[in-house]
Amino acid sequence: MTENDPERLQKLDARLKAARERIEGGSGADRQQSAADSKLAAAGWRMSLELVVGIVFGLGLGWLVDFSLGTKPWFMIIFMFLGLAAGILNIMRTARDIQRHQR
């Protein structure tokens, strides 16, 4: 008869409720927070390399043009700055994406 003991069932009910509140109330907000955090972290990873890769790509491209045209340092310098600008452009776009998502 223990299974139908109303007092015991009520106790179990209360414990279940408390446990559910503890789990859902607590980590529900936590999970949302950590999802937002990992989104921002992903954006950070996106930005971190753009500058370096932009400059290196610009340098490589400029060297290639110089190599084939024989205009030794000039295109390398020009393309390095263009690459830097391209990197900054990509970073600004990433930043704008974050702002758009936060709104």
């Binding site: 990873w45 390399l49 932009g54 491209l61 690459g83 391209a86």
Partner: peptide
Amino acid sequence: IPIEIISYFIRPMSLSVRLFAN
């Protein structure tokens, strides 16, 4: 226009370097 084109072409590089370096 050159800046836009370069920023388009550095995409595969930054994509690959990021994963590999990490």
